[in-house]
Amino acid sequence: MPDTPTSSPPAPALVALAAWVLPGAGYALLGQYARAITIGTTILLLFVLGLLIGGIRALEVPGYNAHGGKLISWVKGQNRNGGAPYGLRASDAPLPPGAREEGWVVVTHPLDELRSKPWSIAQIMIGPIDVLCDWWSVVVSQPSDPNNPNSSRIAARSHSRINELGVLFTAVAGMLNLLAIIDSSHRAGQLEAK
């Protein structure tokens, strides 16, 4: 397979976007197919291995709780600084008495939500595949019997070391793809400058 750049290199931003959408695709746009296949396959295998080890529920999805419930923020009164302290509840849970609903926590308190699930930032670097897996994680976190909210969940949740390894593998895969995004777009920039 050729490992040489094409005659008219694409824009660095386009290369970065392609590399995010599909790991390794940035190098493929530059005509570096061997590098693209090696890096893309390795990153995807690492991500899939992480999900295999920790289970799909090892992915913590911003805006949803561990049981797949959509997190809604609510406020009640005001604190000393004038701002309102907020609480969270699942969308199917009752609103506390006297509380006012704010909305989905990803919209109302996005930074707080990301801060509580920091590994999701590294995992999203894998691209739309992570978004699809996040959706799958939320779906299989639901009760196996829709009429009984206390029934067992469709998928089991991992704990301790196995959960840590699942999160570690998926987050490292995301960070490696970030490295590949930066490198491929940098290479595109260098080719453009020549």
């Binding site: 990153i43 299989v140 998928a155 070391r161 390894l165």
Partner: peptide
């Protein structure tokens, strides 16, 4: 994918770090 990998024993899980290092 629906169940975590049954690799809880301390003699098993450290081997999972090898593919991570390789990747």
């Amino acid at each position: 994918f629906l169940d975590p990998l049954p690799a809880w024993p301390d003699t098993v899980w450290p081997w999972l770090l090898l593919p991570l290092c390789l990747a």
